[in-house]
Design a protein around this nucleic acid. Structure first.
Lengths: 193, 193, 193, 193
DNA sequence: TATGAATGAGGATTCATTCAT
DNA sequence: GATGAATGAATCCTCATTCAT
């Protein structure tokens, strides 16, 4: 599998650095190749085209969020606790990697509709897990029975996303993780039964 | 004042159509000029450069949201009622113009950091009005006293934005306006005292 | 005659200022019109096109050189004295108008071949007068009999021109007029019998 | 070193031909690329921008003049002989390449101030060698002791330049090289002791 | 005469991708 | 697998000139 080859990872990491430090529109393939320490042409042995690099970057980084959330969902806890852990986990991953937020919240959003559609398909795996928590909460009677799952999830993700983007745009100057309890409280109030 | 000249408006409207129908990266100045029924050079009598067109488009369209919200804020009603009207107004404006959502939710987000920074400055006028409603609600005892205004606003705007984007990406197939009551209920639960 | 109309002169003078202060390639017709205090379109009531303005500027300014030289040539003096006066006169005119040198020595030389050809035609009136002095000198036995008039004139004009250009490029910092005696000596040695 | 790559030279030579045959303002990069037999983009692997091409053209061609003059200066001859050889060499180089004079005397002079400044810096290498000959002549007692070196050089270069330009503008119809002895005589008379 | 809004042709440059080595 | 020189399509903006008023 291509993802296991060392150069694949090398190029992905280089792309994150180049995009974060130069911005989406200044992240030329040649710059990524240089950062990765390979020739321009080598990129095309591992990626179909530039679009493929960008999508792979998102996929690679999103996997961290998804894997952690999967662990949370699989635990034997209440939906409210899972919601809380989810928010904390999301903010924790962003806090741990300065480049990540710049890339996911600002730069990759400048990509064109086609790339964004593929990014959304990847994001769906994450959103589905949030839905799962919400369904668990409804079934357990923790969350309101007549709640629109999709809407609730859009509220949760929209809020987390907006807060994260705001934090990135403020140069990550404040403690994002410290906001988790207040975000949790706000969101829980909206959905609890 | 330039905005009162008919051609200024003509070009703005042409830009919205061209961007919505061709996409951000295929919205060439010459295409906008043709759509507006003017010569390419005429564009530059009304706009400094292409960036200026895009920012002006956002400014012009955002003004509709802001003006309507200002009216709502100025009314003699409870903060909860204003929140409700705000959500309805937001969805109403989006519903009334098929092109608008494509431009604000999808296409203009592909613009570079400089344009986005200017877009955010315009957006701030809208966010400030939401903050105003929240402050009014807290002062009147309708909303929780210890509520973080900024966080609550990020929750509200993040949710509305996410719902709207989702509606646009689903080709505006369902009735966005019909979602307003449920969105209102969800958000109000999160902040009411 | 168009040259006697006040606006004609107004535009010529404006052109000299605009060219000197902005450079040839930044001397747009609209800038000249603004400096002259007329509308863009008005320019075209007095000049056929932009080229015509530039040529007229050269013609107008060159007339000063030519008229003064004509007076010198018509005097009852030796050719050597006339040569001396000519050099002094040339440097004097340049010294008297700071803008003139910038326009004639640097900026107008950036014009295209067609304009330069017309400029050369105007210059010919000046060169012919130099030839006249040289012929007088040869006839009077002051200058070498076997001298090639055209070559001698090219030497004289080439030297004066090179010295003047050098003075302009050194920001007219030194006293050009003070060089006249040495230039005269150098050139006279080359041609005297 | 870039100058040793065949394509660098290819492009320089193509630029000379295109400029000479089409004129400075009609010498588009794409035309130069086509003449050089390379793609437009290839130009930019060897030159920073169009300005860089033009300056490089002048530099490359001026090197011929400078190298030949350096050889002359280094010889064990009198300053007068060197002056004579210099004039002959200058006219010889111009005579050998029909395109060269058009480019150096007419077309490149239409370039803007920035390019001209860089061209003048290159030209300085040539002028310095003329100064060297003059200093040698003064020291050896061949040229006048109280002579102003700079002025004498301006006279020499101004004359050669004027004669050459005149020859180019007359479509190189007469024998430029045949003028060398008379030019030499004229200039030598001006400076010899 | 005078105005000035409108016109529209024209070109340098970037960069994702290829392919001979 | 790896290289990197070469490709070439694609677009924003300027400004001389016109002409309806």
């Amino acid at each position: 599998m291509r993802k296991e080859k060392p150069k694949y990872k090398q190029i992905i990491d280089a792309a994150v650095i180049v995009i974060a430090e130069n911005g989406y529109h200044q992240a030329q393939v040649s710059k990524i190749a240089k950062q990765a320490g390979v020739a321009d042409g080598t990129i095309y042995l591992y990626f179909k085209n530039k679009e493929d690099i960008l999508i792979s970057v998102f996929e690679d980084k999103m996997a961290v969020f998804i894997n952690r959330l999967q662990v949370i969902v699989d635990r034997n806890e209440t939906a409210s606790e899972k919601l809380q852990k989810m928010i904390e986990s999301h903010f924790k991953v962003q806090t741990d990697n300065k480049h990540l937020g710049i890339v996911t919240q600002l730069e990759l959003r400048q990509s064109n509709i086609e790339v964004r559609a593929k990014i959304n398909a990847i994001l769906k795996g994450y959103l589905d897990l949030i839905d799962e928590i919400l369904r668990q909460g409804v079934n357990a009677g923790d969350f309101r029975a007549n709640m629109d799952i999709r809407l609730a999830r859009q509220c949760i993700f929209g809020t987390i996303d907006e807060v994260t983007t705001s934090w990135v745009m403020k140069d990550q100057k404040f403690d994002l993780l410290a906001l988790a309890p207040k975000v949790y409280e706000l969101l829980l109030n909206g959905i609890k039964s």
